[in-house]
Nucleic acid binder design. Sequence first.
RNA 1: CGGGGUGUAGCUCAGCCAGGUUUAGAGCGCUUGGUUUGGGACCAAGAGGUCGACAGUUCGAAUCUGUCCACCCCGACCA
Length: 565
Amino acid sequence: MRFTHLFGKTLRQAPAEAETPNHQLLLRARLITQLTAGVYSYLPLGWRALLKIRQIIREEMDAAGGQEVMLPGLQPVELWEESGRRKAFGETLFVLKDRRDRELALGPTHEEVVVDLFKRLVQSYRELPIMIFQMQTKFRDEPRPRGGLMRTREFTMMDLYSFDADYEGLDVSYDKMLVAYKNSFDRCGVPTIKVLADPGTIGGADNNEFMHLTDVGEDQVLICPHCDYAANTEKASFRKRTAEAEAPLPMQEVATPGQKPIDDLVAFLGVPPWKTLKAVFYAHDRAPVFVAVRGDLEVNETKLRNALGGGELRLMDDRAVEAAGLVPGAASPTGLRGVRVVADDSVVDSPNLVGGANTPDVHHLNLNYGRDWQAEIVADIALARDGDPCPNCDTPLQMRRAIEMGHVFKLGTVYSDKLGATYLDAEGKARPVVMGCYGIGVERLLATVIEANHDEKGIIWPASVAPYQVHLVALNIEDAAVREAAEKLYDDLRAAGVDVLYDDREESPGVKFNDADLLGMPLRVTVSRRTLEKQSVELKGRREKESSLVPLADAVSTIAGRAPS
RNA sequence: CGGGGUGUAGCUCAGCCAGGUUUAGAGCGCUUGGUUUGGGACCAAGAGGUCGACAGUUCGAAUCUGUCCACCCCGACCA
């Protein structure tokens, strides 16, 4: 490709809307351009990289036994009602009406459609296992698109679905996918770790996320530096400080004027935080819920929502708490009526806690679970934080930010049951098919490739996904000898099967070198008067500091040898 | 949806508070000519803007007021 023909030129300054390095470089190198919030166009260089990424994923899915298909983006909304996920997705689901006033959804994902497909095509256990995948545009009306390609409303997902006769088969399929995912990210030059995760609206049991650790990630993970424990904060558990065994003491009232936040109360009464009961109020599907955790802990809203069986969860402010007839700052679970109570398992196991008395400026001493109050639900709803002890080995966990590259789920029979997807086993009995689903955000992966491979000058493409392998720079191109040599090299390299971007512009050397660094092709080849005097061309790897000269006669073979096609 | 912020040329921004020499500016980019040429050159001449939209206040609005829209950031959701 000649630079003078390339659609779009580079930007010296990054547009103000971009904050992260990957977003700035995507825009400056003209890989993408934004149409509207969370919707992007992919320009020639960006699209070429994306095609490379897609091909890598395709090869890995094929190698794992996947078969590629293409499923519709337009889906009848009835399918979503049948699976119960129309409500689960809520406003995130794009819904439109056809001319007959029937509702159609723009698919945010494809479990429903793929199960429908399974029902139409598969009858017997003899046909199992099956893995099918596709790369299709997904539409999600995200509450807040952000971070360039990190969270968009229209994006490509590679989604693979596995169908097995039983759970043992699912385990096999799942393990194959773990390998295929790791390989895909590795080949794209993105280091990842596998963490435990929350399944969210997808449902199902076991699931893992592939995370790329970086400060610009929107997720947080907790990693044990000692054992192999790693989990998304949404999911992470930790070893809670165990309460010392004590005989329950009689409950007592104590005046605590003006002591509302737990920190103040702790200082005022001189008790440690883990000897107190902290009350937090949430509106769950609009109904108030009393949430009790020990004073040294915080509530994990994802765990809480799961304990409540899903639904909408919101923190209540003091006014809403008062409106519900409760006392913010001195609330007590004792004698509550008409309010659901959810307790973290830590408070159940801790004797003689200090808690509110449902009277302003009064607290109770020696609250004991079972004797003084009860919870409707007891579960682990505590948020793991940086430094909390690893649940496996007690080592302090480390909190890191990360980008979620992929998410794999053991769905089991959640969808098969809801949508009636069965097969006949060897005895001729109908059984629900056991499913898994596995997704990679393709454009997000592109962004992460850049995030993981750049310096202050620009992108440093891994050869595997570089739009072009060679960036041929002709300096002083108005010099006929230079132009002639550069043109010939360009033609010869292409004839040798090398993807080359040829800077044939009449620009100063600085401009050309800076653009070469910004665009980040793996190998830079420079032709100039200076190199021609020595009958040679100059080669420099994007990651290398030093360049080297190669005789003109050997240029094509040397370059072709260094540049995988 | 709650909180914060920004809309002036392709990109980055000044001008707005104290309305009137602003026929609206700068740098970069773009066009033409010339001089340069191994790390974002220089000179000269140009092109390019309904100052986000609408309504209002005023003799007069980029500037003041109101409404709306768009985009960005922080939170609730996810690949």
